[in-house]
Each structure stands twice: as C-alpha cells, then as structure tokens.
Design a protein around this nucleic acid. Structure first.
Lengths: 154, 154
DNA sequence: TCCTTTGGTCAGGTGGCCTGACTAAAAGCT
DNA sequence: AGCTTTTAGTCAGGCCACCTGACCAAAGGA
C-alpha cells in the first residue's frame, strides 16, 4: 500500500439508521472478541463461540446444539469437531442411549464460555453507565420497537 | 418436522443489548431485501447488492469497487461477474486506459440500485414516524455513542 | 529507456453453511 | 415377539463469499 493516500476515497453513500444499527452491532461483536482474545482465547471463531455457548453446563447432544443454533446437525458437527480438536469440548458415550454422545465443556471450555458471557455482560453494563439508566432503557425500547416494525410477519 | 413440538425449546441464554442490536440490525436487513424482492428482484444476494451500490451512476473500475467495499479485487471480480451475467452491469473498455474496463449499470441495474436505496430510505422514515423525531434522534445518538464506546482504537 | 506501479486475471484454498443418502439404535405398534 | 418409524449421528459432495499467491500487460515516472 502506498503512503499518503487520501483518507476517505468515497464519502458518497446513503446515511440511514440501518447503517447505525449495522456498525454498532459490528462494533459490539468486535469488542466482545477483542476482550475474549485478551483473556487468552485467540483460536475461536464467532460460529465456534456460539456453538460452545449453546451447550449448557450439564452437557448436551449434537442434535440439541443444532436445534438451538438453528443449523443442520452436519454444520453443528463441524463446529463441535473443531471445538473438540482445540480442547474446548469432550464427547462421551451416553450410557442411556448407545447412539448418542454427550458433549461437555472441558475446563478450558468452561473458561471460554465464562469469558464470552462476562465480556458481553461487561459491555452491556458499560453502555448502561455511559448512557445512564434512562437513556439506556429508552435505547433498548426503541430497538425493540424497530425490530417489531421491521418484522412484519410476526 | 413433527407437529406439536414445544414452542421454545431453550429459553436459557443471556439477555443483553448486543442481542438487541444484532436482531434489530438483522430485521432491518431482512426487510430491505423483502421489499426489494417484492419490487421484482429476487436473484440478488447481500454481497451482490453492496457491490452494485458501490458503483456510482457514472461508472467505476473494478479496483475502485474493491477499495470501496474493502474486499480484494478478486472477490470484487466474482460479484461483478455475477452481476454482469444477471444483466445488472455492463463492462466496456476504457478508451483512456487499455488495461481498464468501465463498469456501469444497465437499466435494470439502475432500477435495482434505486429499489435498494428507496427501501432503505423508506425504512428509515417509517421508524422515524413510529418513534417520533425526538426519540428517533435519541436512538441515533445513543447508537453513535455505543459505537464509539465499543470502538476503543478510534 | 528501464523500472515500478497499476488494472485485471488465473489457480487454488478456507470457513461456515447446505442437501442427500446412509447406518444403527431406540421407541411405538399390533 | 416382530415390524415399522423415529431419532442420533456420519459420510460425501456442493455453494457462497471471501482469501493469498503468482502472474501479465499497460501506464507512468526517473
């Protein structure tokens, strides 16, 4: 990349709430992962993290994970295999059902799960502090109304 | 799918502004595409639409599109090829530069561009009406603050 | 002129999904 | 008991939207 290029090559483009929503949502997600990475987890993708978070502390089966995440069991299987390979999950045979495997978190898996949820809780609280509880409540209410407005079939 | 399954298999899960942002943003995007589809464009993906919208009315080169969309020129090329194949774009040689091709919208391409931007403008206005201009302004301000809060490096 | 930069293409790879076809165990029926 | 259907999981292959690396030909400067 050459130095000295102009900063903003294309200021042209619509300005609308859709972009506000999109960029804010993106910033949230990016910051969650930045914090989780700082907590020592740098080998995890968004999809991985969502699958990991979908497994409760007392374990779950593959098909349950797929249902919760609303993906196919094949897709769930891929994420789960990756999480097992990286040491976040373990799979043990279910004594009640010889077809099934019970997926549970390893110690590191629980730590990651905790890092994810505490990063989210922290960001939530930080925004609440920044805006004050009234504006924060207004924000969430407005978002809920927007979501409802943009979801005609429900 | 079997009938009579319970509606919400997993009410368990964090509730935070991140989800509000994510779902609202998703609802916006979904509704934009629903309207564009209703306007007669059903063969277009989000990535396609963003590339199409990145080309100004007086045309652009492939590398410009790639820069604006912040993707590689190879990725831009794929989207552009798809848009040309579907009749939304044309490519003509640049008389000033024999390496370059000038990409411009076809009539249908301009129509799609218009459908996209007018759907967005409509959704923007509808939310403003629903919330009233004061709450709407507050929403956008709060989103801007949230985005800034979650973007530490800037 | 030579050499670097620029516009674009080709080949191959990855992540995160998908459908379809299949096996084996469990559950329901008669 | 037997037979059928459902359920848990696997295998194979494909798609989309990106990516890196290697390249070519034209343009533009020293």
């Amino acid at each position: 990349m050459a130095a000295g290029m102009s900063d903003d090559p294309t200021p042209q483009g619509l300005d609308h709430v859709g972009l506000d929503l999109w960029f804010t949502s993106l910033a949230w997600e990016t910051e969650v992962f930045a914090r989780v990475e700082r907590a020592g987890f740098d080998d995890i993708s968004l999809a991985d993290s969502e699958v990991l978070s979908a497994i409760p502390l007392d374990g779950a089966r593959l098909v349950e994970v797929a249902r919760r995440r609303r993906i196919t069991k094949q897709a769930a299987q891929e994420r789960i295999a990756a999480l097992i390979k990286r040491g976040y999950l373990t799979a043990e045979p279910d004594p009640q059902d010889r077809r099934a495997r019970i997926l549970s978190h390893t110690v590191r898996g629980r730590a990651l799960r905790e890092a994810l949820s505490s990063a989210k809780v922290a960001l939530h609280r930080e925004l609440e502090e920044r805006l004050g509880s009234e504006r924060f409540r207004d924000l969430r209410a407005a978002l809920a109304e927007a979501k409802a407005l943009y979801t005609p079939g429900a």
